[in-house]
Nucleic acid binder design. Structure first.
Length: 515
RNA sequence: GUCCCCGUCGUCUAGCCUGGCCUAGGACAUCGCCCUUUCACGGCGGUAACACGGGUUCAAAUCCCGUCGGGGACGCCA
């Protein structure tokens, strides 16, 4: 019944992402943003970004940058933006209103006292003795005398009192008021706490759906209390299962390293759309067999019903991440990083990698080459756009991360091939002499053939037959001579793109290496 | 310690609400085969899960209870 009233009266949804800028944007936060965004876009709603910067001590500009940077990369936008620190007046007004109704009281207990006694005490702390019962007169007198106090919510204490709400994901939630402590609304310096500020803003901004991490599920009882005390109907809640590390604990930068930071994925060469796709599949399902989905597709099919309740593991390699890439701390701007330190593919969740490769394969050549070009140039190679367009089709199905272009197509970019083991030139069931014979013949043949796929194909196959070799035995030495390794794109296409001059030059060099 | 949440292949998940169509489906990873000039892509196939114990029922992954396991919250942090 209440659900009906709520949804019919709320009009278009208004959702918000409210990070506290105390660190880089991490993957869990990004997912929360995405789910909110998807919900807003799906239902023609409004997406609001609110910086919950109430904690002056811990907020940093760098963190705000990191959040914006991450969201920008993901291509996620928002319609309204607020800073909680600029809305203090609103928060105090709500506190005042609650206090005047007698639903909050002043607590003159000095701050930071409960720490040690709490751990020693059996059972839950509920309130500081003596404060909840203080008469209004005495409370006013002490406040007027300038005594510092925190404002606490007067949680109902009658037997049988309960707080309840319906969560779109976790269903009916009921908790005995006796299990909720008298939480603070205002600190003794007059600043609002998170609970108060958050609720005041959510009410003021007419937020209709609060979609956030499940770590807030038990805070929600307090929020319901605040909303109701201030005379507002609480919004709808939808709590998301947490993203956890392979060890089952909440993702944290300290413990798990850069794999929890969004910019790490960007710098490693993930496609934003693939990364979004991956994140969506953690804790949400389209309920059919689809896995690869475009942003548009996600907007079309996203719904709160598809969210599940169990925590989802981001299956990265813990050791690899903390050792191999600790130097790549995401706090350091990308320019400052050592480009020589490669991202280890093994650190990432294999499904993220696969999805990325899947999205890469789905990209048009022009699009992909445009994304590849800056990476290649940043690595110090001089490559034209035209050339990149030629190379791209040869590696599109061979890379998982954009940065893989650097290792997959290196031989196109350099003048001189890095040293390789001449033994690689020797074909299957052959010897150095055979390799020598192949390369010598190849040189002659290639000197007089048009460097296009079909003529190359015909000429080299014919040469193989002449020499009494299998095609593979013919191609392998040439491939290694030209690419510097056995595993490479198809030979004829490669030769065509590489050109006659470089090809002949490299074969020449290979023959001398064989000696 | 108190309260809350969760528990299907190694991982992400479908199925659970509305018991039978589930000898539990898909995807990634892994293994094998095929395709093939290498690699990759692609195709085909294999290994692999209802945490456990009790109920209820003709019938339980699905409903109930308990146990165990995991996670989260209990701040004048957010």
């Amino acid at each position: 019944m209440s659900e009906l009233l709520n949804s019919s009266s709320s009009g278009t949804p208004r959702v918000r992402f409210a990070p506290s800028p105390t660190g880089f944007l991490h993957v869990g936060s990004a997912r929360t943003f995405i789910f909110n965004w998807l919900y807003a876009r799906r239902n023609s709603g409004t997406m609001i970004l609110r910086l919950d910067d109430t904690d002056v001590e811990r907020n940093t500009d760098a963190s705000v940058h990191s959040i914006f940077e991450g969201l920008k990369w993901l291509g996620l936008n928002w319609d309204e933006e607020y800073k909680q620190s600029e809305r203090g007046e609103l928060h105090r007004q709500m506190a005042e209103a609650i206090f005047r109704k007698g639903l909050a009281y002043r607590d003159f207990t000095p701050a930071h006292t409960g720490d040690s006694e709490r751990s020693g005490t059996q059972g839950t702390w509920l309130f500081n003795p003596g404060m909840r019962e203080l008469s209004r007169e005495e409370s006013d007198r002490r406040a007027a005398a300038g005594e510092k106090f925190a404002l606490r919510f007067r949680v109902p204490r009658d037997a049988g009192d309960v707080v309840r709400f319906t969560d779109a994901v976790y269903g009916e939630q009921i908790k005995a008021a006796a299990d909720i402590e008298d939480f603070a609304l205002l600190r003794s310096d007059g600043m609002p706490t998170y609970h108060l500020a958050s609720c005041a803003d959510d009410a003021d901004l007419r937020i209709t759906h609060i979609i956030r991490g499940q770590d807030h599920l038990s805070n929600t009882y307090k929020h319901v209390l605040i909303f109701e005390a201030a005379g507002f109907t609480p919004p709808q809640f939808a709590h998301l299962p947490l993203l956890v590390a392979p060890d089952g604990t909440k993702l944290s930068k300290r413990r798990h390293g850069p794999v929890v930071s969004v910019t790490t994925y960007r710098d490693a060469g993930f496609l934003p759309e693939a990364f979004i796709n991956f994140l969506c599949l953690l804790g949400w399902s389209p309920k059919d067999d689809r896995t690869k989905m475009s942003r548009q597709e996600l907007v079309e099919i996203f719904s709160l019903e598809g969210i599940n309740r169990a925590n989802a593991v981001v299956n990265f390699k813990e050791n690899a991440s903390s050792n191999a890439s600790s130097a790549l701390s995401t706090v350091i701007p990308s320019e400052a990083r050592d480009p020589g330190v490669p991202y280890d593919e093994d650190t990432f969740d294999p499904k993220a990698l696969w999805l990325n490769a899947e999205h890469i394969r789905g990209l048009a050549i022009g699009d992909l080459s445009e994304r590849l070009l800056p990476i290649v140039r940043e690595a110090g190679f001089n490559v034209t756009q035209e050339r990149m367009v030629q190379i791209t089709p040869l590696i599109r199905e061979r890379i998982k991360l954009l940065r893989d272009i650097l290792t997959a197509a290196d031989f196109f970019f350099v003048d001189q091939l890095p040293p390789y083991d001449p033994a690689e030139l020797i074909p299957q069931k052959g010897d150095a002499a055979m390799a020598q014979k192949v390369l010598t013949r190849a040189k002659e043949v290639l000197a007089n053939v048009e460097f296009k796929h079909d003529p190359l194909d015909r000429a080299l196959r014919a040469a193989a037959q002449e020499l009494g070799l299998k095609a593979g035995q013919m191609f392998q030495p040439i491939r290694v001579a030209v690419c510097g390794r056995k595993n490479a794109p198809p030979l004829f296409e490669t030769l065509e793109v590489l050109g006659k001059e470089k090809t002949l030059d490299r074969i020449e060099q290979a023959t001398s290496r064989l000696k």
